[in-house]
Amino acid sequence: MLKDKKAVIFDLDGTLVDSMWIWKEIDERFLGHFGLQVPEGLNDLLEGYSFNETAEYFKNHFPLPLTVQEIKDTWNRMAYEMYTNEIPLKEGVIEFLDVLKDKKLPIGIATSNSRELTKACLNAHGIGQYFQYICTSNEVPKGKPAPDVYLKTAQELSVEPEHILVFEDIPYGIMAGNSANMTTCAVRDAYSQAVADKKRELADYYIDTYFDIINGTYQSV
């Protein structure tokens, strides 16, 4: 899988860490505070949205007495404790990062999450030093499935897209990596298990854990 690769880029949520479950809970608590309920299918609708795009959607579609920035600040406060104390790394992450470090491959993160939560999560797990660059979808014109966040990360890592391996957990993220002309590997995640076949269809590889790469048991799809 790593043959001819000169850099690796990871998504964060559902890919490096098992965190996708918290956002439904945060939505319920946040809207519930204002006497509102989470509409059916909201998470699916917002899949791939950047942190800023999601806040703008909430501002435009719910009667909230908050600015977009206040919405983001509230979410960051609510999520910070979970990201630093409750969210585990995906199985085999540290071992695989050590492999990449030994191979001297630059490593980046391209995430739809906020920079604050991303850095807090990485530092809480003691893995922030592995990554040379972090790019959030808030810092590019369009979020996933547009390729912008991946292309920006590749530019900052000074590696051509065709020599980059991307790890993603949801179809929109895989589509973003594909659109950036990068090799994509889908990562198993309970949150997106219902679309596992779609992930296999879109990606070049599929793994249950990062030990699949180390042990050579990954799937070429």
Rank of each mutant, 00 (worst) to 15 (best):
H163D: 15
I127A: 03
E162P: 11
P63G: 05
E25H: 13
H33A: 14
V149L: 00
A194W: 11
V99D: 07
E86T: 12
S220L: 14
G35V: 07
K72V: 07
I26C: 10
S137R: 03
N76R: 12
K119S: 13
F96N: 06
V17R: 02
L157E: 06
Q129A: 13
T118P: 05
L165M: 10
L2E: 04
D13K: 08
Y150E: 02
V221G: 10
E162K: 15
E86R: 14
A124Y: 02
N181K: 15
K103H: 11
Q132I: 01
Y57A: 11
L89R: 06
G173V: 06
K3S: 14
D73G: 12
T184A: 10
N85R: 15
H125W: 06
E81V: 13
I164T: 06
Y80K: 15
F30G: 08
K144T: 00
P106S: 08
A7R: 03
N60R: 14
K101D: 12
K104I: 03
P171K: 02
T217Q: 07
A55E: 03
S50C: 04
E81S: 14
L117E: 06
R200K: 15
P88L: 06
Q219H: 11
N113V: 10
M82K: 15
D13R: 07
G143W: 01
P88A: 06
R77E: 15
E28S: 13
M182W: 00
T74C: 12
E139R: 05
T118D: 03
L165R: 04
T183C: 11
L31P: 10
P147D: 01
K152L: 15
D4A: 14
P88G: 07
Q129L: 09
G35H: 04
T84K: 11
K104R: 14
G216Q: 04
Y218P: 10
N181Y: 11
H125E: 05
I134S: 00
W21M: 02
N76C: 12
V221S: 11
Y57D: 09
C121I: 02
T15V: 06
K142G: 00
D148M: 05
L31V: 09
G48P: 05
M20P: 05
R188G: 11
